[in-house]
């Protein structure tokens, strides 16, 4: 138990650091803003209860908000993503169901399963985030383009991070 907590604390700090030091400095005409910190919520164990996920989502969003200046923005998007997680896991579950003690990572149930799982959650997270950030319908399609492009890059970076950094 303590081991798990330590492991996730390490993961949390690592992801926040990558987000703040690397990802926030990507300046590609404002259309590509990957938010990879969401991987923390995605990687929580299968048996984590939904209220725990919600609380952790809140804390993650709060920490990211502290570094970005728009208080509440990342909280709402991340809490929404955390809320969706159990439903999405249900939706994409393999025939034999999930095994206890597994992590919903890249190696758990194959590449296709992982891609579908993170793609759905990252998309909804970015959708909430970017529309809340703009908070007007004026630039609807441009915002949608930002959502799609950023989702693509976030998923790409998440896979890279999964493949290189976290070998568990």
């Amino acid at each position: 138990m303590l081991n798990t907590i330590l492991k996730y604390t390490g993961l949390f700090i690592l992801l926040i650091a990558i987000q703040v030091l690397l990802m926030n400095n990507i300046q590609f005409s404002g259309f590509v803003n990957p938010y990879i910190y969401i991987l923390f919520i995605l990687l929580l164990p299968f048996e984590a209860s939904s209220w725990l996920i919600l609380i952790l989502s809140f804390i993650t969003g709060f920490v990211i908000d502290l570094t970005s200046g728009n208080m509440g923005l990342h909280i709402s998007a991340t809490v929404f993503a955390g809320f969706l997680r159990p439903y999405v896991l249900n939706l994409v579950s393999p025939h034999e169901g999930y095994e206890q003690g597994d992590l919903p990572g890249l190696k758990a149930y194959g590449f296709r399963w992982f891609i579908t799982y993170i793609l759905i959650i990252v998309f909804f997270h970015h959708l909430t985030l970017f529309y809340l950030e703009v908070f007007r319908f004026e630039y609807f399609f441009r915002t949608l383009l930002r959502v799609l492009l950023s989702t693509g890059f976030t998923v790409l970076f998440i896979i890279i991070i999964q493949a290189i950094v976290i070998r568990r």
Partner: peptide, 23 residues
């Protein structure tokens, strides 16, 4: 969990709506 979700989102929106954003 739905209630908790609504509560947390309410806090988030409250924070979002309270201007100046100097976190």
């Amino acid at each position: 969990n739905v209630l908790l979700f609504v509560l947390l989102e309410a806090i988030a929106f409250y924070l979002l709506a309270s201007k100046p954003n100097y976190h």
